[in-house]
Structure formats: structure tokens, C-alpha cells
Amino acid sequence: MKKLVAIMLSAVLALSFTACSKQSAKAQMPNPFADCKTIEDAEKIAGFHVTAPDKIPEGYTQSIIQAIKDDLVQIIYKDGENEITFRQGKDSEGNGDISGDYNQYKEKNTIMTGDLKVLIRGNDGKVSNAVWTNGEHAFSITANPGETGLDKNVILSMIDSIR
């Protein structure tokens, strides 16, 4: 009798674990990004004009364009496995960091380029993340973690080409 109770208890626990696993899988957050064919399509979704960089490092090509309704546009440039992500969004929260980059960096500096104050973060003299605002919009450029980062002048060239 004890064996039967133990087997039934084990079965109930296994079934309840499976049920809980399936429920948590259903509760995942949906992806807020909509894939777009063109920047114009992304602008319609986001509700603002996008000012993407004109200068992209050599070897990189525009690969993915995505938008979040009434909020943000993301453009991903690729060079093989390496990626640079440009984001432009409404600066409704006033913090200016829309990068989604939560990595810890050894170096963090604020620099001026023209009249823009840009926060750059990275390691070993290379920049992996740059964020700034122009009053109305927040911007970011992030080099993927697999890359060692970009030269500061490359990032500044990208930022200056947005104006």
C-alpha cells in the first residue's frame, strides 16, 4: 500500500510540475518589435521620422529594421557575426538610455560632439555603447558583445552623420 501511495504521489508531483512548466511558457512576454522592410515602414509604426546614421563602418550593411509602435526604431547593421545596433526612440522617460545594453563596462565617459553630450561605455579604449538625446528623441549605438568594441572616432563619425 505504501508503494502505491508513493507512486501516486510521484505521478501527481510530476504532472503538476509539467502543468506549471507549460503555464510559465505561455506567460512569456510577446516580442514588441515588428519587422519592417524599409525605414519608412518603421517610421509609420513608431510615429516619428528616423534619422539613421549616414556613415557606417566599412564592411557593415543594413540587415534588420524593426519598430515598436509609437515608441522606437531599431536598425541592425552586420559584418559577418558582428553587429552594430542603432536605436532611436521617444525620450518620454527623460533618461536617454534606450540601448537595452545592461553589460558592465570598465570605462564610462561623457564626451561632447558638436552640441551633443554623449555617454560612451566600453573596455580597453574601445566603445561598445553610446547613448545621447537631442531633447525630443533618445539615441543609442551598441556594438554586439562578441566584438571588442569600436574605435571612439568610428562611433563619433556615426553620430555626427545623423545630423
Results as ranks from 00 to 15, higher is better:
Ala27Asp: 08
Ile75Leu: 05
Gly100Asn: 13
Ile76Gly: 02
Ala6His: 04
Ile7Ser: 02
Met8Ala: 14
Trp132Arg: 00
Ile75Val: 12
Lys2Met: 07
Ala19Glu: 02
Tyr105His: 01
Asn144His: 02
Asn31Gln: 08
Gln74Tyr: 08
Asp41Val: 01
Ile162Lys: 06
Ile56Phe: 07
Asp160Cys: 01
Asn109Ser: 14
Ser161Gln: 08
Met1Leu: 06
Leu13Ala: 14
Ala52Cys: 12
Gln104Trp: 09
Gly80Arg: 09
Lys37Gly: 12
Glu43Tyr: 13
Leu116His: 15
Ser99Pro: 13
Glu83Thr: 11
Val118Trp: 06
Asp54Arg: 15
Ile7Cys: 05
Ile159Lys: 03
Thr148Pro: 08
Ala138Val: 05
Tyr105Glu: 03
Met29Cys: 07
Ser128Gln: 13
Asp54Gln: 15
Lys2Tyr: 06
Glu147Gln: 11
Asn144Ala: 05
Asp79Arg: 15
Val127Lys: 03
Pro30Ser: 05
Cys36Gly: 05
Ser99Gln: 09
Ile7Ala: 02
Ile141Val: 03
Asp115Ile: 13
Glu107Pro: 11
His137Ser: 02
Asp151Lys: 05
Arg121Pro: 05
Met1Tyr: 04
Lys26Pro: 04
Lys69Phe: 08
Tyr60Ile: 13
Glu81Thr: 10
Val118Glu: 01
Thr38Gln: 04
Met29Glu: 12
Ile159Gln: 02
Asp71Lys: 15
Lys152Asp: 01
His49Gly: 11
Asp79Lys: 15
Lys55Phe: 10
Thr148Trp: 06
Ser63Ile: 06
Asp71Cys: 14
